[in-house]
Design a protein around this nucleic acid. Structure first.
Lengths: 117, 117
DNA sequence: CAATGTCGCTACATATTTTGTAGCAAAGAG
DNA sequence: CTCTTTGCTACAAAATATGTAGCGACATTG
């Protein structure tokens, strides 16, 4: 699978629209998890592997390459880190943590009402 | 693959943290694309399939079920639509369109400078 | 009622992706 | 040199996605 880049035809859209390339990239297994784990910390290959619940090194390396050529993460002397633009993307992902908490409560409420009703 | 739910152990995390369930859910092929295409419009199964570049009906139905049991989308008389909470999630995804445009320009600039330097 | 078309969705074989495990070369510590 | 850690590759097995065919329900036309 080739790395999705804005301006090119990607899985899910042939328009070349940047958002479609991003959706393809982030929609790949573990992409979001890797970015999330890289928030505020530089991690080595093995640390990242461990935090991503033992993702296979094969796939981790594949994703790392994709995220590097798309300039979302970079390799530093200490390990992998988000780039400046990657940090900005993370700022957009962060609020999802709050949404997810609300979502959990919502699902619990629905479950409760379906049991009651 | 079971549907990731907040409060449960999911692919990528055994903590049950809501964000991890969300990352697992959205990280699956086509999830983000389906949600994106459902912005401001109710779509039939086949319309959705067409907009998602011919996604196989098998997988589309699998994703649709996952998104329905997690209450992000719902089936209406007219077709599939985002739920109220699904709309809120979309509001968080929207800004990624702008980010992606900036990202494209950034990548073009990098490419240019690497050619020059 | 019969013929035609659309729609939601299932079946299933094939293709692609992900996992899991093993392990190697390089770098640092003693 | 030995021991340990690290980044990463190999590769077979398992899981997931694709592509195509097509069924039953329903609406339209006549």
């Amino acid at each position: 699978m080739s790395t999705p880049l804005p301006g090119q035809s990607v899985r899910g859209s042939k328009t070349g629209k940047p958002i479609m390339a991003l959706l393809d990239l982030l929609g790949r297994t573990w992409s979001l998890g890797i970015i999330w784990n890289l928030s505020n910390q530089v991690l080595t290959f093995r640390e990242l592997q461990s935090l991503c619940d033992g993702i296979s090194p094969t796939l981790l390396n594949t994703r790392l390459k994709e995220l590097r050529v798309t300039n979302i993460i970079e390799k530093t002397g200490k390990g992998y880190a988000l780039t400046a633009i990657g940090e900005k993307l993370l700022l957009l992902i962060y609020p999802m943590g709050d949404w997810a908490t609300m979502w959990r409560d919502h699902l619990i409420a629905l479950k409760g009402s379906s049991n009651d009703g």
